[in-house]
Simulated scan of single mutants.
Amino acid sequence: MAESAASLGQFDFAGDDHVVPFQVDGLDVRGRAVQLGPMLDAILERHHYPAPVARLLAEAIVLTVLLGTSLKFDGKFMVQTKGDGPVDLLVADFSTPENVRAYARFNEEALAKAIAAGETEPEQLLGKGVLAFTIDQGQYSQPYQGIVELDGTSLEEIAGVYFRQSEQIPTRVRLGAAELFDRDEAGKPRHRWRAGGLIAQFLPQASERMRQPDLHGGDGDPGVHDHADDDAWAEARSLVETIDADELTDPLVGTERLLFRLFHERGVRAFPPQAVFDRCSCSRDKIKGVLKGFSAEEIEASEEDGEVAVTCEFCSTTYRFDPSELKTEA
Rank of each mutant, 00 (worst) to 15 (best):
A92R: 00
R172C: 15
E241D: 13
F271E: 10
A114S: 08
V161R: 12
E298H: 02
Y140W: 13
G187W: 12
L111E: 03
A114L: 01
L180W: 15
I61A: 03
G306E: 02
V24K: 03
D221F: 07
A178K: 13
A114I: 03
I61K: 05
V130C: 05
E157F: 01
V276A: 07
E208C: 15
R211M: 15
L40M: 03
T171P: 01
R279E: 14
E119R: 14
C312Y: 05
L259F: 08
F133R: 13
K76V: 08
P189I: 05
F73K: 00
G37F: 02
D93C: 01
V310S: 06
L155E: 04
P170S: 08
L90I: 08
R183M: 14
S154V: 01
G75A: 03
G146C: 04
A60C: 12
S302Y: 04
D250C: 07
L90S: 08
L198D: 05
H216M: 12
Q205Y: 14
A177P: 09
E329L: 11
L57D: 02
Y144M: 07
A186K: 13
G197A: 07
V62G: 06
L215S: 14
A228R: 11
Q80H: 02
P272M: 05
L150M: 06
T317P: 02
V161G: 10
G220L: 10
G15V: 02
F11C: 03
R261M: 13
G187S: 14
D25T: 12
R320G: 00
A177F: 05
L150Q: 00
E179Y: 09
E156V: 00
E179P: 13
Q124W: 08
H47P: 01
V91F: 07
Q35E: 06
G197Q: 06
Q145A: 12
V65E: 10
T153R: 03
D74L: 02
A114M: 05
F11R: 11
R105M: 07
L175C: 10
V310W: 01
L180S: 12
G127L: 13
